[in-house]
């Protein structure tokens, strides 16, 4: 049998790679072992929803003020490993009441992989938190 393809539509699916986003920003010695990675994945599956904790929209969707998911509405990782839509966490950190803390764990928000902490983030408590 001979088939001639006259036409085709390519369809692609994309997702934010949440784990890669984290690992990329972790120091080399913090790379999880294969076993650890597996566990982490299971944990992720247990997590009821892969949604931004602030707007409750899926990470793969976009924040309520955007129309197109993806690069136009990127995710942002904190050193505390929490992930949000960048636009959502900016709205929070812009408020005085945020005290520049991560909404999840109230640790000072430090964007993972950033060269320097945001100017307003006091470095001292962060070190204290790490020791404790």
């Amino acid at each position: 049998m001979k088939i001639t393809i006259n036409n085709y539509h390519a369809i692609a699916l994309w997702r934010w790679n949440l784990k890669a986003g984290l690992q990329q920003h972790q120091p080399a010695n913090a790379q999880p072992t294969a076993e650890g990675e597996e566990e982490e994945e299971e944990e992720d599956d247990d997590d009821d929803d892969d949604v931004c904790g602030i707007c409750r929209v899926a990470y793969d969707g976009c924040c309520p003020d955007c129309k197109t998911p993806g690069d136009e509405c990127p995710l942002i990782w904190g050193e505390c490993t929490h992930v949000f839509h960048m636009h959502c966490i900016i709205k929070w950190l812009d408020t005085e009441s945020s005290k520049q803390q991560c909404p999840m764990d109230r640790r000072p928000w430090v964007t993972a992989g950033a060269a320097a902490p945001p100017p307003d983030a006091p470095p001292a408590p962060r070190q204290a938190a790490r020791v404790a």
Binding site: I54, C55, R56, V57, C63, P64, D65, C88, K91
Partner: peptide, 14 residues
């Protein structure tokens, strides 16, 4: 500003 986020999130919560 911000009304979309509140409307969307409250709709979800409700």
């Amino acid at each position: 500003m911000g009304s979309r986020i509140s409307a969307k999130r409250l709709t979800k919560e409700l």
